[in-house]
C-alpha cells in the first residue's frame, strides 16, 4: 500500500506538470487550430529566467514574476511576428513555424543563459511529508496546487468571461466570430499570451523538482502534446486528465513493470485509448465536415 501511494505521489507530481503544458497547448489550439511546439520552451523560460534573475540578486518572487512576464512577451512576439504574418497558411506550415520558433528560442536561451542544469530552492523547504508510509515533497503540493488553480482559473475564464466566450467562439467558427464583432487577431494574441504565462508558471513551480536547462522544452512539449491528445484536443479538462494519466502511467510503469520501458507503457496505453476513443477521452464523436 505504501508503495502504491508512493507511485501515486510520483505520478501526480509529474502528471501535474504535463497537465500544465497540455493546458497551454489546448488554449492555443482552441483559438487557432495550431499545435504550438514552442509551448515547452515557455516552461524553460519561466524556470531559467527565474534562476538567472534570482542569481542576479532579485528576490525570488519578483524574479519569478519577471520571468513569467518575459515568457508572455515572447508568446506575444511569437504570435505577432511569426503566426500573424503567416495567416492563411495551412496548419502544417504554422506548426512548422512553431518548431522553428522552438529551435530559435533554444538557440537564444543557450546564449542568454548557459548550457548547464539549474535548480531553484523549494518554496516550502525540502523536508518530506510522510503520508501513509510514503513520502511527498512540499514542492509537489505546490505543483499540484498551482495546476489545479490554473485549471480552475482557465475554466472560469473560458466559461464565465466575455473574452473567454469570444475565444471559444473563435475556436468554434472563426468567420462567424468575426461577423459578430470578435477581433480575432486580439483573441489569438490573448491565447498565445495566456499560454505562455501558464507554461512559465509551470516552469517556475517545477524547476525545484525537475531542474531546468535551455533545452528541457522539447521533452515537456512531447509529453504535454501527448497529454492534450489523449485527453481530447481542445478540452481543458481532457488536458488535465490526460496529463495526470500519463504521469501515473509512467510511475506505475516504472514501479510495477519495467523502469526501462515506462515511456513505452505510457504510449501503449495512449494507443489503446485512441483505438477505442479516436478523439481522446473527452473528445466526443464529432463528424468530419465535408
Amino acid at each position: 500500500m505504501a508503495e502504491f501511494l508512493q507511485l501515486v505521489f510520483s505520478g501526480l507530481t509529474v502528471g501535474a506538470v504535463y497537465a500544465l503544458v497540455a493546458l497551454g497547448f489546448t488554449l492555443i489550439y482552441n483559438a487557432s487550430d495550431v499545435i504550438n511546439f514552442a509551448q515547452g520552451d515557455f516552461v524553460m523560460i519561466g524556470g531559467m529566467g527565474t534562476v538567472f534573475l534570482a542569481a542576479a540578486g532579485i528576490a525570488l518572487p519578483l524574479a519569478a514574476l519577471m520571468a513569467i512576464v518575459a515568457a508572455v512577451i515572447v508568446g506575444l512576439l511569437l504570435h505577432r511576428l511569426a503566426i500573424e504574418p503567416a495567416r492563411g497558411a495551412s496548419p502544417v506550415a504554422l506548426i512548422m513555424i512553431t518548431i522553428g520558433a522552438s529551435i530559435f528560442i533554444k538557440g537564444v536561451a543557450q546564449l542568454v543563459f548557459d548550457k548547464q542544469f539549474h535548480s531553484l530552492p523549494a518554496f516550502s523547504g525540502d523536508a518530506p511529508i510522510a503520508l501513509g508510509g510514503a513520502t511527498l515533497l512540499p514542492q509537489s503540493l505546490w505543483v499540484m496546487g498551482v495546476a489545479l488553480a490554473l485549471f480552475v482559473a482557465l475554466y472560469l475564464f473560458l466559461e464565465k468571461t466575455l473574452l473567454g466566450k469570444a475565444l471559444r467562439a473563435t475556436a468554434a467558427n472563426r468567420l462567424a466570430a468575426r461577423l459578430v464583432g470578435v477581433n480575432v487577431t486580439i483573441i489569438l494574441a490573448l491565447a498565445f499570451g495566456v499560454s505562455a504565462a501558464i507554461g512559465a508558471i509551470a516552469g517556475v513551480v517545477v524547476t525545484p523538482i525537475t531542474l531546468t536547462r535551455y533545452d528541457v522544452g522539447t521533452l515537456f512539449a512531447l509529453k504535454g502534446f501527448a497529454a492534450a491528445m489523449v485527453g481530447g484536443m481542445g478540452h481543458p479538462l481532457g488536458a488535465v486528465v490526460g496529463g495526470l494519466l500519463i504521469g501515473l502511467l509512467e510511475a506505475f510503469g516504472a514501479g510495477y513493470i519495467s523502469s526501462t520501458y515506462k515511456d513505452a507503457v505510457a504510449f501503449v496505453v495512449i494507443l489503446l485509448v485512441l483505438f477505442f476513443l479516436p478523439r481522446g477521452l473527452f473528445g466526443g464523436r464529432t463528424v468530419e465536415r465535408v
Binding site: 511569426a82 504574418p85 503567416a86 497558411a89 506550415a93 504554422l94 512548422m96 513555424i97 518548431i99 522553428g100 520558433a101 522552438s102 529551435i103 530559435f104 528560442i105 533554444k106 538557440g107 537564444v108 543557450q110 546564449l111
Partner: peptide, 14 residues
C-alpha cells in the same frame, strides 16, 4: 548557429 537555424525555418515558412 541554432538561433539562426530556427529563425531561417520560421522566415521560410512565413
Amino acid at each position: 548557429e541554432q538561433a539562426v537555424l530556427g529563425l531561417l525555418i520560421m522566415v521560410f515558412m512565413i
